[in-house]
Design a protein around this nucleic acid. Structure first.
Length: 280
DNA sequence: ACCCAGGAAATTC
DNA sequence: GAATTTCATGGG
């Protein structure tokens, strides 16, 4: 991996096992949209960028070399060897080889913990298109303006001072009070997100589940996508169907230390092949 | 009108 | 305690 910068862009060469659409538009982050030039525009860590991938060259517009090293290198998890991981987990089960070969460019993003928490609270009993709309309105309403049309994700402090009814314009429905409860418990320290990086997995889950509206699945997604606990194996409706039909008898713990990456391959593969899951 | 959506809380049995 | 219903909202 080699990094050069010209003007307001950073170019990273030697980037393998990354596909922008597979990674940014597969239901782990809700803040990226394809732009008119085949790249993706998005916001994370209070920065807005456009990203493009040409072969093994990743270009990030709106980014200094310093910001790349501080933010985006980690965000895209570029130090982890996904090729090696794919080889390893392919040996676990033939269907996992199939699923991971189908979309080998999926990576697990390292998102902001509080953003992951809130967006997966919003995700419950919801669809990806509407989740994106609610998240967009949440940022426009309560996030810091960081560009012409770009808003940072709201801070826990800001949201903690609101009442559930203040979120009515988001049209998030019953999830409003969950978001506020999460913000308040994070602000007060009753829930310590950073501690969830290192706590034993079950304890990290319990910590997050102190929040009203956070159950096992939302906790698992927060841990996987916001705290990079890649052993996490969230079971949503798609994954439950996939487990029954494609991996009968197997349990999450059978997928090893990179279970979260396996999960994301399976999730994407299942959604792209719904015909495999009929009957469940 | 009906069903579903990257679920979880509230209620009922 | 386990199974069912309800919870807002939008789209098919």
């Amino acid at each position: 991996m080699e990094v050069t910068s010209q003007g307001n862009s950073v170019i990273v060469s030697g980037v393998r096992n990354l596909d922008l659409a597979e990674t940014l538009d597969c239901g782990q982050s809700f803040r990226w949209a394809e732009n008119e030039n085949g790249g993706f525009h998005g916001v994370a860590f209070n920065r807005a960028v456009d990203v493009y991938l040409d072969g093994e060259n990743l270009r990030i517009d709106g980014c200094t070399q310093e910001e790349f090293n501080l933010i985006w290198k980690n965000y895209f998890d570029l130090d982890l060897d996904y090729g090696k991981i794919r080889e390893d987990i392919s040996r676990i089960h033939p269907v996992l080889f199939e699923a991971s070969s189908y979309a080998p460019g999926i990576r697990i993003l390292k998102q902001e913990p509080f953003e992951a928490l809130c967006t997966f609270i919003i995700s419950q009993n919801n669809n990806i298109k509407r989740i994106k709309g609610i998240v967009q309105r949440l940022c426009e309403s309560f996030g810091e303006k960081i560009g012409d049309n770009d808003y940072a994700f709201p801070t826990a402090l800001r949201l903690s001072r609101l009442e559930p009814d203040d979120l009515a314009p988001l049209r998030a429905g019953f999830r409003n009070r969950y978001i506020i409860d999460g913000a308040r418990k994070v602000m007060s320290g009753e829930v310590d997100l950073e501690k969830c990086r290192t706590l034993p997995y079950e304890e990290a889950r319990k910590e997050l589940m102190k929040i009203v509206g956070v159950g096992v699945k939302v906790a698992d997604c927060t841990l996987l996508f916001g705290l990079h606990r890649i052993e996490s194996f969230p079971l949503d409706v798609w994954m439950k169907r996939a487990m029954k039909v494609l991996f009968p008898g197997m349990k999450p713990e059978d997928f090893g230390e990179y279970a979260g990456i396996a999960q994301q391959y399976i999730f994407h593969y299942s959604r792209m092949h719904p015909e495999l899951l009929i009957g469940e």
